[in-house]
Every structure is written in C-alpha cells, then in structure tokens.
Amino acid sequence: MNSPQAIVIGCSAGGLNALETLFAGLDRALPQPIAVCCHTGSATVDLMCELLGQHATLRVVEARERASLEGGVIHIAPSGYHLLVEASHRFALSVDERVSFARPSIDVLFDSAAEAYRDGLIGVLLTGANRDGAEGVARIRHCGGVAIVQDPADAAVPVMPQAALELAGADHCLPLAAIAPLLNRLCLT
C-alpha cells in the first residue's frame, strides 16, 4: 500500500458506541479525511454528529454534496442517501435503490472510495447485523487498499464483520480497542 490518503468506516447495529470509542482514540494530528457510513433510523444525522463530536478528537460533520473530503475531519453520510466518493476526491450523493436493505450503504461508499483512492485507502468495518460492507471490503482489498475488520468475537453484533471476513478476508482483524492505535500508526508514519 501507498501512504494512506483516506479512511472509510462502516458500521450498523451497535455502531454508534463503537464509533465513539474509535473516534476518542484517534490522534488529533491525523491528516487524512475520514468518511463514515453508519446505518441509522433517524431522518437526519445532526444528533449523531453532535453526540460523536463530544468525545472525538477530530471534528465530526455531515458529508456535504460536491464538497471535497477534508483532511482531519470525520464526515458522516447523510440519512437517506448513498454517499459516494468521486475520482476527484469529492463527495456525491445518490437516492438509488437500497443496497443490502440500506441507504446509505457501506458497500456503495467503500466501492467508490476504493476506486477513487485505490491503494491509498484504509477501510474499517465494525459491528453490524447485516451483510452490507462485505462486498465493499472485497473491493478495497482488490484495489490495493487496507481492510481492517473488527474481530466478530469483540463486536456488539458479529454478523457484519463475520460476513466480510468470509467473503473478503482482512488485512487486520482486531478488537475495537486496538483499531484506533493501528490507524494512528498507519496514518502518521
């Protein structure tokens, strides 16, 4: 892999708590942009950004259509839209059909980011109750990026990381507590 240029994170059931832990452990000097797809039932992600922002070392904002991915900032996919990354490293939104029953879908974010950043991408898949993200992890690895999957035994809901491991494997399979330190190491050296 090249030096990392961006990080994408996917999670579903149990994801909010996992993100809280992860974001609290990130080094505040992290220069890469971070994009997050977290399945949520709410109509907006305002509250999610606020909650996550309380403990995060980095700024947490909703990802904005057409905006560039900003280094050192955590961008959350808006509710009800797929979030994609263009080759120009800008965000795009879509209201296409749900993928794996989800919109935003982790696969959609991971696929597009994998092609936009190729071997400069790190993908992180955390707890969740469906199979969304498995294809995306495969795509990231296929394009030369690094995939980090939460150890299913450590996940609040193991289905999602388990599905990804079975379909795509991972470069690192770790408990949640070890993921932020790994990201800091990969991204700051």
Binding site: L84, V85, E86, A92, D96, V108, D111
Partner: peptide, 9 residues
C-alpha cells in the same frame, strides 16, 4: 453525469 453513480448503474 456524476461518474461514480453512473458507473454503479
């Protein structure tokens, strides 16, 4: 058209 979505479709 925006390339990423178009390619998906």
């Amino acid at each position: 058209y925006a390339p990423a979505s178009l390619k998906r479709r």
